[in-house]
Amino acid sequence: MSSDSNYYVPEQSPYPVVTALAMGLLALGGGLAVQGKGMLILTLGLVLLAVVFYLWFGTVIKENMAGMTSPQLKRSYVWGMSWFIFSEVMFFAAFFGALFYIRVYAMPWLGGEGDKSDMISLIWPGFQPEWPLMVNPDQVVGGEKFVGPEKNMSFPGWGGVLGWLPLWNTIVLLTSSVTVHWAHHAIKHNDRSKFNLWLGVTVALGAIFLVLQYLEYHHAYADMGLTLESGIYGTTFFMLTGFHGFHVTMGTLMLFIQWIRGLKGHFSADDQFGFEACSWYWHFVDVVWLGLFIFVYVLG
């Protein structure tokens, strides 16, 4: 409920319409790029987006430092970030939903369960459903479009647990969630040096996670025959972990920017929403990873 009598309506700004232009270029450029028609427009869109975000956020920060932001506007930011994160949750829900549907329904049906079994066994005779799916329906009938993986990413058993990258990734990311919380706690008590320290550690942990993820992907492509093209297991594995990795990249970048802002002394005990919003995002990314760890790796 609003109780402020002096509302704040920002001045006109060129940044939104330029952001829209950048997004238009991204859409056009993306469509061209996937057809192999060059990366020029896509790159142009990305650069423009980066520049305009730098200017736009810079303006918002300047306005805030000049004391133009009302408590009411800050509450709007809180609502805005919360609902944005909710929309991200729903995006991941679509991919988790796809995974569950495939594993719970599509796999058994492809294997001939249910009342369509006569027809299915005519199309894919001899297909054995399993998860992780190592032999695709296509291969069973002599096709070569989707060649199943040689190995999968599932839990290797307690013997090999220490060499299992996903476990280390989980430890790294969970630790980073704790360190970002400590940074939050520090700034709430106006302890800037501790804030800078713990936020720096968080960013470093984020970077370590990404390096480990890169190593895992390299291992998958080079040694395991596990690629995007190796059927539904590779599809769901790379799309879920890939989108998560993309979000970790964004989150690390966001926290890195907040770290620089922290070094510049932008934050105080009662004004640190830029950092706070990024930390929420980071916790969200962490929770998604837990879901991945359980449903893609451990129960994979």
Binding site: A106, W124, P137, D138, L228, E229, G231, I232, T235, M239
Partner: peptide, 21 residues
């Protein structure tokens, strides 16, 4: 987008996916 351009099989039963998905 991924099925069309990057060889995934969300909606292709040959790769273990399902158009009904």
């Amino acid at each position: 987008l991924m099925d069309i351009n990057f060889g995934t099989s969300f909606f292709d039963a040959a790769g273990g996916g399902d158009p009904v998905l």
